[in-house]
Structures are given as C-alpha cells and as structure tokens.
Measured scan of single mutants.
Amino acid sequence: NQASVVANQLIPINTALTLVAMRSEVVTPVGIPAEDIPRLVSMQVNRAVPLGTTLMPDMVKGYA
C-alpha cells in the first residue's frame, strides 16, 4: 500500500504548504504520493483543507 499526503493541520485556502502541515499515511482513496512531499513545499492549496484530509492533485496549485 502506498502512503499518501494527509493534512496534519487545517490548511487555509491559498496557504503555502510546509513540512509541518503534511504527513504521510496509507489511506483510501489514494491521494498525492508521500514521496512528493518535498515537491509540495511552498506550493499553495486552492481550497481549505481540513485536518486529516488526503491531499488530491487538484487541491494543489501547479501540482497536476
């Protein structure tokens, strides 16, 4: 099972992602792969992401 990126805190809309804001977890459905965490740092989310939410490619500006 592949680990996905999960919000480690509430991430407000247009907030730049940080290492502290993300964690890796095996979840269903699978979201952005955990190995992409370094690439996600400083990218912005295009919606509010609640704690525990799996990050999907369409939630991160410039990711997809």
Rank of each mutant, 00 (worst) to 15 (best):
P12Q: 10
M22S: 02
P57S: 08
Q2S: 12
T15D: 06
L10D: 15
T18S: 11
S4V: 01
R47M: 09
P38F: 14
Q2L: 13
A21I: 08
L10I: 10
I32K: 02
I11N: 01
A3G: 09
P50Y: 11
V27N: 03
V26G: 03
P50I: 07
D36L: 11
P33L: 08
A64W: 08
A21S: 13
D36Y: 14
L51C: 12
T28F: 13
M22E: 01
T15S: 14
Q9V: 13
N14M: 10
S42T: 14
V20N: 14
R47D: 05
M22F: 04
Q9H: 13
V60R: 02
P12G: 07
V30P: 14
I13M: 12
L55T: 01
P33M: 06
P33C: 09
V49I: 15
R39H: 10
V49L: 08
N8T: 12
L17G: 00
Y63D: 02
S24D: 06
V27W: 04
L19I: 08
Y63P: 02
G62Y: 08
T18V: 07
A34C: 08
A3L: 11
E35M: 10
L40W: 03
R47H: 06
M56H: 07
Q2P: 14
I32S: 02
Y63G: 01
V49E: 04
N8A: 14
A7T: 10
G52S: 05
M59N: 04
N14S: 06
S42N: 13
V27H: 01
M56D: 04
A48D: 15
V6I: 11
Q2K: 11
Y63I: 03
A7G: 01
V60S: 03
I37H: 01
N1H: 12
E25G: 09
V27Q: 02
R47E: 08
T53R: 10
T28M: 11
V26T: 09
R23K: 10
A16M: 13
E25V: 08
I32T: 01
L19N: 06
A48F: 10
V26P: 05
P33T: 07
Q9F: 15
S4I: 04
P57H: 07
S24R: 11
Y63F: 08
R23H: 03
V5N: 00
M59Q: 04
N1G: 15
M59Y: 11
V45L: 07
L55I: 14
R47K: 09
I37T: 05
S24A: 15
V5C: 06
A21G: 07
T53E: 11
P38A: 10
T54R: 00
I37P: 01
T28E: 15
L51P: 14
K61I: 14
V45M: 03
Q44F: 15
M43Q: 06
V26R: 07
G52D: 09
L19D: 05
A64L: 13
T28Y: 12
R23T: 07
L55Q: 02
P29E: 05
T18D: 06
V5I: 11
G52H: 08
S42D: 10
A48M: 14
